[in-house]
């Protein structure tokens, strides 16, 4: 009699352990004036790899949200789309968005909160995670979820990509926050299926917000976006000035249909806008073709581009570290060979 009851008790216990919450990810889907950021599409893919439900969260002003929701529900793997509109959400300020996220996380059994490694998700997710006494794992390059224990294992680069750390977020952490390196996950494809459930969520108005958005200045360009371009032409300090940077690199970039990037030295010297910086503290890119023109290849720069498929380097200095990672290197004066290359490419 006693034995039976203890057996029942044990099986009940083990059952509750095994059913430990099937994953349900909340993905912070970013958009700029109604256009979904590509990084968020990679975040959707990463969230799908957890093996459970994926809810996309769309916030913004009422004029943009509906359009984004219509696109979002078509992405592969999205099981539901939550949306909240408010004039306060027109700009993604962490101080106004974190109460909304906290409420969503309190009301729903989300197991993961996912964002791109973008400036706004990087600002928002850690703020919310701290309030839930949880860590944020940044810039994840691969992940694996163990449904039995509810633990998730992530890999991520550390030391400017010179080492790879594998960390496990245990099942005891009820919500796991992470941001996703866009170049490590393919963007979620749009599918014909339109089965995602759409649900409006009441905004959480913040009375007297402590932070007010004043203005945003976006560096305008007709070229492809640096983060997602399949080809990138980058220039360094050797370009000498903003004018020669433009005159030398832009025709080559145009001939290749490439985005333009820059090393920190070039940005600091004012040759290029800082949103074009490639490296540990700038953008991380992994295009089909990366052309490093007049870039020596410091550790911090390599961190942002060494996963590119084909790296081509043009540099006067044969000992420049960039040649250690370049698939094709040309030791030459860039002011002579870049125009020649541009001309011959056009033929």
């Amino acid at each position: 009699m006693l034995r039976t009851s203890s057996k029942i008790c044990r099986s009940a216990l083990s059952r509750s352990y095994a059913t430990a919450a099937s994953p349900h990810a909340l993905v912070f889907l970013e958009h700029r004036a109604g256009v979904i950021d590509s990084g968020s599409l990679s975040a959707l893919t990463a969230a799908g790899q957890l093996g459970g439900k994926v809810s996309a969260l769309v916030v913004g002003s009422s004029e943009h949200v509906q359009g984004v929701v219509d696109q979002a529900k078509k992405f592969k793997g999205v099981t539901s789309v939550l949306h909240a509109s408010s004039p306060q959400y027109a700009e993604p300020l962490p101080e106004t968005l974190s109460p909304l996220l906290e409420k969503l996380l309190a009301d729903n059994a989300f197991t993961h909160v996912v964002g791109a490694t973008s400036s706004s998700a990087k600002s928002l997710l850690p703020r919310v995670s701290a309030r839930l006494d949880a860590p944020t794992v940044s810039d994840v390059t691969s992940l694996e979820h163990d449904a039995a224990t509810g633990s998730t294992t992530f890999t991520r680069p550390i030391y400017a990509g010179n080492a790879v750390s594998t960390v496990r977020a245990p099942g005891s952490l009820p919500v796991k926050f992470f941001t996703v390196r866009g170049t490590a996950f393919a963007p979620a494809p749009a599918s014909e299926a339109d089965a995602a459930e759409v649900k409006a969520v009441d905004p959480v108005e913040v009375a007297n917000p402590t932070t007010v958005h004043v203005k945003t200045t976006i560096a305008k360009s007709d070229r492809p976006d640096l983060g997602v371009a399949s080809r990138v032409v980058s220039g360094g300090r050797a370009l000498k000035s903003a004018e020669t940077f433009e005159k030398t690199l832009y025709p080559l970039a145009d001939a290749l249909g490439a985005a333009v990037g820059a090393s920190r030295a070039a940005v600091d010297a004012g040759y290029a806008d800082n949103s074009l910086q490639v490296g540990q503290t700038g953008k991380v890119v992994a295009p089909e073709l990366y052309m490093a023109i007049g870039i020596s290849g410091a550790i911090q720069h390599l961190a942002g581009m060494k996963d590119s498929k084909l790296i081509v380097a043009v540099n006067k200095d044969p000992d420049a570290p960039i040649f250690q990672v370049a698939d094709v290197g040309l030791v030459a004066d860039l002011f002579e060979v870049v125009p020649e290359l541009t001309e011959k490419l056009k033929k």
Binding site: V137, V164, T166, A169, Q324, A326, G329, A332, V337
Partner: peptide
Amino acid sequence: QLETLKVTEPPTRVGGGKVSNV
């Protein structure tokens, strides 16, 4: 809160050598 399972070297990239002209 997180358990570091291991730290490894990233895959190394070998330069493909140099070319002499455009």
